[in-house]
Each structure stands twice: as structure tokens, then as C-alpha cells.
Design a protein around this nucleic acid. Structure first.
Lengths: 98, 98
DNA sequence: CTTTTAACTTTGATGGACAAAGTGCTTTTC
DNA sequence: GAAAAGCACTTTGTCCATCAAAGTTAAAAG
């Protein structure tokens, strides 16, 4: 059967994949840290983040460090579930290919 | 470090990913079998196949079954290497996310 | 011969990725 | 306290990719 039938369309983008993967291991990550880890422009990152937010896979927290604004992102339950599902589909595909 | 830095751009498409994954386990696969396994339109499949061919990741054999034409596809050495590299990058990302 | 099948190519619409520039707010530096 | 810089975007515009649908060519089946 179809080895790619269970892949999630949202995670076809390498950047969104990267965001999710970072947020799986770090409870909260700032915009700037994501930007540096993934080596993308801020505009590009922002648009992928908003795609993920619209899918309810991540959520935003606008906080402060002292008096300075600090926006952080974290994964939602739904996001964790969806991402794990995607990883399982990838693993199945990898297993299929060996 | 960047968890997605080693992903191969060619394999960001689910269909190309599927083609490669099928060709990893089957020596030769016909156009029609690919089409059915991946559930895509023929035009769409053809264009992805030609992308993979231009990257020298797959090669085409135009043969016959009796007198009837039969086109099959197979993976190249370079394709196998590139795909394995991509799978390793995916696995690294998955490991990173857990 | 007409229809069907295979394996495409062409066409055209849609949408996504991306960089660059602009924005508003705040903080730091001189 | 004015200027510069940083943060977290939004807007704009370009380019490219995806995809379906229709057209094409050749061969085979009915």
C-alpha cells in the first residue's frame, strides 16, 4: 500500500518540521532562538509559525524578561499528537525502505 | 544545532519521497504500479519522476512485455546514497525529538 | 475501425516559500 | 534625550512548485 499516505501535509515544510522538532524537546523557545537554530529570516519564520499556530499545533506566549518583551512558543497537545503521528509515518516509511 | 540542516530539498515532496521509498525495496517498478501505489494522477507522477531523473536519482527503462511497451523505473547508486542520507537526517531529527 | 491503455507533455490555475523592506515598540548607547 | 539597535512581527512582491485536466502518440484489444 501507499507508503506516504499517513504523512501530514503541514509537516512537508522543512522549517515547520524544524520548529516542531525543536519544540518537542524544549518546553519554551523564543522567536530569536528558533530563528538562529533554523537559520531563517524572521519574516519567513513568522509566517511558518503562524501556519502552525492556525493549525493549533503550537501556541504563543508573550512575556517579559525584566522589562523587555520576550515571545516564546510551545507545542500544544494536538501538536504533539500530530507530530508524533507524522514521525510514526516517517518511521514506517523508513522501515519500508530497508 | 540545526535539526533540519541535512534534509535533502528534493525529498521535501511527499510524492518523490514515496517514489524513492518504493524504489528502495523494488528493483524495478512500472509507471502504472507507482501511480497506483502513490494514488496520484499520471501527469503529476510523470513530472515528479522527471525531477528525480534530472537529479540522477532514478533511471528509466523502456522495455516491453511481449509487444507492449512497459516503462519501468529504478533507483541509481547516487539516488540510493542521497535517499539514505536523507533518511539518516530524518532519523537524527526524530532522535532529537524524543 | 473504434475504444482503451500506457506514458507521457502541455496548459493553466493556485498556492507556497522566501527575501526584503516597512512598522511599532522598547531598550540601550552616546 | 536623541539616535541606534533589537524584537517580533506584517506587508509586498517575486518566483517556483504542485496539481488537475486535457491533449498526444503509439500500440493493443475488441
Amino acid at each position: 500500500m501507499n507508503p506516504i499516505g499517513n504523512l501530514n501535509k503541514i509537516f512537508e515544510s522543512r522549517i515547520r518540521l524544524g520548529v516542531m522538532s525543536v519544540l518537542m524537546v524544549n518546553e519554551e523557545v523564543s522567536f530569536n532562538d528558533l530563528k538562529q537554530m533554523l537559520e531563517v529570516t524572521d519574516g519567513n519564520l513568522a509566517s511558518h509559525l503562524s501556519t502552525l499556530e492556525e493549525s493549533a499545533y503550537i501556541k504563543v506566549h508573550k512575556g517579559f524578561i525584566g522589562r523587555k518583551t520576550n515571545t516564546t512558543y510551545s507545542i500544544t497537545k494536538a501538536g504533539e499528537k500530530a507530530f508524533k503521528g507524522h514521525l510514526a509515518a516517517l518511521e514506517a516509511m523508513i522501515k519500508f525502505s530497508s
